[in-house]
């Protein structure tokens, strides 16, 4: 054990950082794209259902295949890895944003409009804050998945903890596989807890009683 850390300790830290970096970049991109898109979709419900099913179908493409497809287009390295992962983060966030916004009490939205809220004010002051717990659940789900999937980034030279796992597989060294897996799991758990804390912070006071989050 100590011996392992002596030889791989430095490497492990770097790979963990890389792993975190890739996943977070992907998730951030996902949040930036999927939340506005989800809100936009909630304005066109007829189109939204079809669009979301379409994204759902795309998501069924095996992740390894997606990574492979990206090589001819974007080459190898971190960027294609982040883009591929971003692609996977979209669906849960998009779907939760769409559902969350759509499920906001119609009476509240109508009252807001009737009081004279512009569309933008209605989104910022009413729909988004009220949908936030549902949206955050999507973000958490995406993050946890993404940290797991980010191990595949190693496959296209993206680095991260996947490097350990692939090395372990190639060299028949279970210790390396474990060295890749355990930190990834821990990262996922930490990410989930921190997001849950952020969610709690962001959830408006008046909603906390009605939506208790785990």
């Amino acid at each position: 054990m100590m011996e392992f850390f002596a030889t791989h300790g430095n490497d492990l830290l770097i790979k963990t950082w890389e792993h975190l970096y890739i996943s977070l970049a992907a998730i951030l991109l996902g949040v930036l794209v999927a939340i506005p898109l989800g809100i936009l979709l909630s304005r066109v419900p007829n189109f939204a259902d079809r669009f979301i099913s379409f994204i759902g179908i795309l998501q069924t493409i095996p992740s390894l295949a997606i990574l492979a497809f990206f090589i001819p287009i974007l080459g190898v390295g971190k960027l294609p890895a982040i883009l591929a992962l971003f692609f996977y983060s979209l669906l849960p966030i998009l779907r939760n944003t769409y559902i969350g916004v759509r499920e906001v009490d119609k009476g509240v939205v109508e009252a807001g409009r009737g009081m004279g809220m512009s569309n933008w004010q209605s989104i910022m002051k009413v729909e988004f804050p009220m949908a936030l717990p549902v949206i955050m659940a999507g973000v958490r789900l995406s993050t946890v998945y993404l940290i797991g999937w980010a191990t595949l980034a190693a496959f296209i030279g993206g680095g991260g903890l996947g490097d350990f796992i692939f090395d372990g597989l190639n060299l028949y060294q279970p210790a390396l596989i474990i060295a890749g897996t355990v930190p990834a799991t821990i990262l996922a758990l930490i990410a989930d807890r921190s997001l849950s804390m952020i969610e709690n912070k962001l959830t408006p006071e008046g909603l906390k009683n009605s939506y208790k989050t785990a």
Partner: peptide, 22 residues
């Protein structure tokens, strides 16, 4: 339309108070 609505009171059956506001 937005200005107009601000100048007319509006009360609905669902009450529609903003649950996240005091």
């Amino acid at each position: 339309a937005v200005e107009l609505r601000r100048s007319i009171g509006y009360v609905i059956q669902q009450i529609g108070l903003m649950p996240h506001m005091t």
